[in-house]
Structure formats: C-alpha cells, structure tokens
Nucleic acid binder design. Sequence first.
DNA 1: CATACTATTAGGAATACTTCCTATTTAGGT
DNA 2: ACCTAAATAGGAAGTATTCCTAATAGTATG
Lengths: 142, 142
Amino acid sequence: MLQIEELANSLRTDGFRITPQRIAIVEYLLKTDDHPSAERIHRVIQKKYPMVSLSTVYKTLDLLKEKKLVNEIEVDGEARFDAHTDEHINLVCVNCGKIEDIDEDSLREIQTRAARKSKYMILKSNFELFGYCSSCKSKFTV
Amino acid sequence: MLQIEELANSLRTDGFRITPQRIAIVEYLLKTDDHPSAERIHRVIQKKYPMVSLSTVYKTLDLLKEKKLVNEIEVDGEARFDAHTDEHINLVCVNCGKIEDIDEDSLREIQTRAARKSKYMILKSNFELFGYCSSCKSKFTV
DNA sequence: CATACTATTAGGAATACTTCCTATTTAGGT
DNA sequence: ACCTAAATAGGAAGTATTCCTAATAGTATG
C-alpha cells in the first residue's frame, strides 16, 4: 500500500499538481475497503471540502486509474473504486451492494495461460463473483 | 447449446409467449459469437422485423438472462450479450472491442474456494481480461 | 374457428451515471 | 511576489437503460 507522500511525489515528478481535492480523494480511498461509487466519494469529501465538485472526483479517479493506483469495477451500471490494485476477486452482494476482496494466487497463472492461448496482450483483469453476502444470505433462508 | 424448439417449449410451459421478436433475438444470439450490444442486436433484428423496438430487445434480454440462456458483460459502460453461459473467461480488446471466450476449467474450483472463504452464496461469475487482441496488438508494436 | 384474456409490444419519455465545456482559481517554478 | 499552465466548480450535454401506456397479438378455451 502506497503512502500519500510517496504518491504525491510520484505525481509531482510527472508534472501533475497536488491539490487538496486529490489528497482528500486518495486519503479516503486508502483508508476504506468499501469500494465506494464516485458519488459516495463526492459526498464524503464534501464534508471536508464543501466546494469540491463531482466532475473533479471523476477526473481525479481517471488520473488514479491511469496511474494504476485505483481499480474500477462496474456494478449495476455504476462504477465502484478501490485502492486494492493487486490481482484479486471481487465478491459483490447483489442484495446490499457490498463488495469484498479475496486474494487468489492462481489468477495470475490463469491469466498467463489465457494470454498464451488467445494471443492477446493482457493489460488488466477483472474477476467478479456475484451472490449474497453472509448477512444477506441469512435473510433469504427461511 | 439449446435448440430453438426446446427453448420455446420451456418458455411456453412457464407461461411465457413465443413471439417472432423473441425468436429472432434468440436465433441471432445462438448463431453469433460476437458478444453484440443491445443496439447491435436491435439493428440486426430490424432487417427482418423493421418494427421491432429497442425496448423489446432489452426486455427479451432480461428474460433470457433470468432463464440463464444468455450472459451479460459490461464493457465501457455498455452491456454485451452472449449465449455462451458456461463458466469462461472473456477476453476484451480495448482497441477494437472484440470479445473472445476462453474455457478454463479451474474457474469453477476458484469459485468454490472463494465462496467458502467469504461465506458468500455465489449466483453468477464474471471473468474478464482486457488487452489488445492479436490483430490490434500488431498495430501497436513498431 | 371465434372469443376472451392477458402477456407483450412499439414508441417515446424519463432516469441515471458519466463526460464535456469554460470561465475562474490555484499550484508550483522562477 | 509573479507568471503560467494545470486544475477546478458548476452546470450542460451525452448516452445507455428503464419506465410508461395504449395498441397488438399469442394462446387457452369452448
């Protein structure tokens, strides 16, 4: 997990500017494992910086994605963001929307095998499982 | 791969009606491995049934998804559909949008392991790899 | 085969997330 | 402190999908 300071320096040397908005967004993403949506990030950041705009949140997330500092997954037509960028499986609860990460070593190997078979040059992967999380599951069993 | 007739009977016994629109959509999905978008399906179907509406295409796809006869994946904020419903990996070309399927036996096992670890009740899975397909790849290597 | 019932449809309006636009502000080098 | 380009706020525009409703058409029944 990258620290804010390292990250800031890395952005700065690439000619990007360190703004309070960017810091707030990165800080929030680093300390949560909630996989928030852009709107939720916006709501949270606004408590500290009431003037921050949603478009800035989107732009910052774009930048962070490009720098491979955040991962984006699409759930129900909505993008959700996460600072966990290692290869992992996202478990998505179709009832409450909660997303949990699970590390799984074999993914890298599968990816290599698929790349070889298909002759694709792989840039990014996405492994999702949809179902009921443990707490929603119990609501559905009588 | 299910045949149209079996499928029609299965729908009929569940109280669903067999309409020309539904047949056209299923027929198209069964014979292509293109992973078309709703709009593309609509365009293709319209050649045969000029009056078919896009909303009917969406509704039919919903029905087919529910019946587990088609699979949906999301690419660039657009849904793409596929009659290949076994567990498999989708290779998505980020340049031309082509999607290729690869069977991979170990997915089922990974899924079981993740379900056990997380206590989720898994309903559906989605494995995607993004990159350049073999023909786009060559455009990017000098 | 005609009838009745109700699922389905066409078409367009409404919705929701994301991207785009532009005047203004501000980070960071000098 | 000043300058310049990068970034921002705010809202408008774009786009895929869902929703709404009157009209249509499968299908079961007699």
